[in-house]
Design a binder for these strands. Sequence first.
RNA 1: GCGCCGGUAGCUCAGUGGAUAGAGCAGUAGCCUUCUAAGCUAUUGGUCGCAGGUCCGAUUCCUGCCCGGCGCACCA
Length: 571
Amino acid sequence: MRRMLEKIIQKIVIELFALEQVDFAVDYAKEEKFGDYATNVAMILAKKVGKNPMEIAETLKKELSSLEELSSFLSSFLSKIEIVAPGYINFYLSEKFLQDKVAEINSAKENFGTGEKRNGKTMVEYSQPNTHKEFHIGHLRNVFIGSAMVNILKKGGQDVISANYIGDTGTHIAKCLWGMTKFYKDTNLDAIENKAEFLGKVYAEAVAAIGDKPEYEDEFKQLQKRFDAGDKQLVELWEKTKQWSLDEFQEIYQELGVEFDIYFWESEEEQAGKKMVVDLMKQDFIKESQGAIIADLEDYNLGILVLIRKDGGILYGLKDIPLAIKKFSEYGIDRSIIVVDIRQGLYFKQIFKILELIGFKEKMQHIGYDFVSLKGSETMSSRKGNIIPAKFLMEKMIEKVREKFPETKIEKEVGLGALRFYMLKYSAQSKIEFDMGEAIRLDGATGPYVQYAHARICSILRKAQETNANLVSTDNNSLSLLVHEKEMSLIKELNKFPELVAEVSESYEVHKLPYFAIKLADKFHSFYNACKVIDEENLELTKARLSLIIATRIVLAETLDLIGVSVPEKM
RNA sequence: GCGCCGGUAGCUCAGUGGAUAGAGCAGUAGCCUUCUAAGCUAUUGGUCGCAGGUCCGAUUCCUGCCCGGCGCACCA
């Protein structure tokens, strides 16, 4: 709708003022009293044409309503066009258009807002947990953003493959293995209760110990060499403990309802990377330096990236390179998106540059987001062991719901929904200083607030069904009775959904989804308090309002789905 | 040192080259014999870090500075 108005105005401007493309916007009006859409085009033109903006606005308005075919087209959805100082042109949607919107949503159902099919395939890689480390709340942010990205891209009309890349090898694992052989040699591993937690602990201990004593450092280096060389006992221990972590990850993913189409493994890419070395060395910018193999990217202001340690160990860069290539060659994608913490921003610029320099020029993008820290504490780090494990937090959320609503049956849906909603509300560039008190809130602008709106609608629908099943129909004849201010306001919000989908699937600003959800739930709650839906004295209005809340339910449910929050019918 | 991100209400955060800068929490005053009060209504609260510049118009764009965080060779 906005884009249509933009196009029409653009065309008129070009004709009327003999100008080239003009940069202006049709936006949602800031407040309802300024109509529904507003444009600043007149003020922008004022500069170029040297005329009073009010005058220009008048001219444009006249033109808009004088062209016959155009005006009949416009009047099909606009009720009036208004000019306000200093030169805004405000557009008001007609009641008819909004009433029809309800029917449109109810017939489109969950396809309302779905974008047109786009050619090509996009791969979204996210989560990338490391085995032998604990899955903490920082990792949760990644999963929430990544899965929401997958959802919104699909909704926007794209073919999406979701991928996970498991860090099942590397220095951190060698450290953990060293810690196990050093301090837990005689421990009965199978008897350990929380195995994943145990690994995290051992890892943190090992890091601390190695940092403490130089002889430990030597011991560790020795072990790492043996491990890299394929020492049988170490590999056995690695495989066993790796599985512990994987089991834990699966449990978490299942709780959160995320699934991956493909898994990549760092240990496999390591082998692929090794095979590439000879070819890579033919490149000028890949060279030996201080005993290591590096990519020299100083010419591009990207510093250097070490690919192979001086002791021969393959580093992460040399694993990401073959992986990037494999994604395109084996999965027929035309675009690759990687969701990772912003602190790896430079690293990905380096990787993309290396790929470009060796002639691999596909569309790749790193989506960064700032990290999660603990309020009043230093940066959370598995190395330091000062983390909040994801599982702990998830349990805590569920517990909180149970505590506050002892009779509830959906503490999991509500608790985990609240958590996800809380984290996704932050824009990507915003650092989350994790505050438990804030995260576990269940009132105000939270997930449960939106879920509650949905549950309330379902409750009304159940009651309507019991009272008089005929009321809940797809009969659209009574929609013209929807004229209440709160009804209009609610429909206007519903109307924004398709544009939101289109926008977010382009901009990747997934935090806009929860904000929209809140606004929509807000409009509904407000309507709910002002308008009684079921009124046996007025069956026609009841029908109309039932249609309205059914439409609202559809959009609320779709939005919650995109965010990844469950959609309860009862609370 | 170079680079990236942030600095908006007491707190946590949205937002925008333009119309009186928004939400939640906290505070204050109301609303349950009516479809779920996990709700609604009203209200208090802001020199949009500081200083310049561009512009008819800057919180938004540019420059400089201050504060906080992060990244810059063998971790991922």
